[in-house]
Design a protein around this nucleic acid. Sequence first.
DNA 1: GAGGGATGTTGACACTGCTTACTTCTCGAT
DNA 2: ATCGAGAAGTAAGCAGTGTCAACATCCCTC
Lengths: 187, 187
Amino acid sequence: MSTSLSNAPYHHGNLRHALLDAALLMLQRDGEAGLGLRDLARAVGVSPAAPYRHFDSRAALLEALAVTGFQRFTAAMNAVAASQPPDLLAAMGQAYVRFALDNAALFRLMFSPQLKRDNRPGLRMAADAAFATLRQVRDGDSASGRIAALAAWAKVHGLAVLLLDGQIALQPGEDIEALIGAIIGQH
Amino acid sequence: MSTSLSNAPYHHGNLRHALLDAALLMLQRDGEAGLGLRDLARAVGVSPAAPYRHFDSRAALLEALAVTGFQRFTAAMNAVAASQPPDLLAAMGQAYVRFALDNAALFRLMFSPQLKRDNRPGLRMAADAAFATLRQVRDGDSASGRIAALAAWAKVHGLAVLLLDGQIALQPGEDIEALIGAIIGQH
DNA sequence: GAGGGATGTTGACACTGCTTACTTCTCGAT
DNA sequence: ATCGAGAAGTAAGCAGTGTCAACATCCCTC
C-alpha cells in the first residue's frame, strides 16, 4: 500500500505536458494575467513549487506555451503550402486569420510584448521558424514583389488582430468567412 | 512652520495628473507589467494608497492612461483630415503608423487585451470616438468601398503592429519612412 | 472661525512569484 | 538483489503586490 491511499502516484508521470495543457485552458479562460503558477499547480493537483522542476520561471512557462503555439502555426502554414492551392498567398492568408481566430488567446500570447521584452531565444527561434515559409514566399522575387508581399502580410495580420479585438463589426447577416475572403481578395 | 520640516506639502496639488504623467514614463520604460501602483506612488512621492483617491484600481488607472492615448490619437487623425491632403486615406495611414511608432508603449496599451477583458465603458467610448473619423471615411460609399476601406485599415494596423514587434526587418540602408509609404501606397 | 468634504497616511490583509531545505520515489551500475 | 545518485515533489517562508478600512490633515464654505 505504499503508493495508494490516494490513487495519485507520487510522481506525476508527465507533469510538464500536463502543465502546458492546463495552462492553455487557463489562458483561454482568464487571459495571460490570470495565469498563475499556484492556480496552475492546483489545477493539475501538485504542490505550488512542483512546476519549477520543469520551468525556471513563470516567463519560461509562458514562453514554452507560446512556442507550442508557433509550432502549431508553422504546421498549419506548411499544410497550406503543401496542398499547392491555385492562389498560394490568398490561401495562406485565410489560414493565417483562421488560426488567429481559432486560437485567440494563444495567438495573442505569441505576439505578447511581455514575452518579447525579456527576449528568450527559444521564442525568437520558434517565431523565425514559423515565418520561414512566409518569408520564402515573400522575399522570393524582385524588390517590388517584396513590398507587395509585406503589404499582404500586414493586411492579413492586421485583419486578424482587429477581428480578435472585436474592432471590426459585422454587418447584420454577414458571414465572417466571406468577409475575410473578400478583404484578402482585395488588391 | 506647520507645513515645513519637509518641503512637501500634505496635499500634492494635482496628484491625478502627476500620476498619469509618471505612469506614462514608467510604461515607456518598463512596459505594462512593470507599472506598479506602489512604484508609481513612490515616484510621485506619495503613500502607496494615495492613488486610490483618484483611481478605483490599477485597471482604472491603466484605462485612464489608454483613454488619453486615444484622445491624442484622435487629435492626430483629425489634424490630418483637416489639412485636406490629396490622398486622404494614404495620409491617414501614414499618420496612423507614425503615431504607433512614436507612442509604442501607449499604442500597445490602447489595444491591450487585458484592458478589453474587463470592458470598461470609458475605454470603449474613447476608442469609438477615435475611430469615428476613420469609419466616416470608410463606410461612406458602396459595399465594395467598405471592403476596400476595411482592407486598408487592416493593412495599416497590421503594419503598425508588425513594425512595433520588430517583425519586419529593414534591409540594409533602407529608410523606414520610405518603406511605410511604399507599403501604404501599394494597392 | 467652526464644520465638512476632499485628499493623503498608516497599518494590515490576502495574494502572488519565487527560493531554500527537505522528503520520497525511480532507476541504472554494481 | 541492492544501494546510492539524482529526479520529482513537498513544506515553509521571503519579498513584493493590489487593495481596503480607519485615521490624520488640509482647504473651502457658511
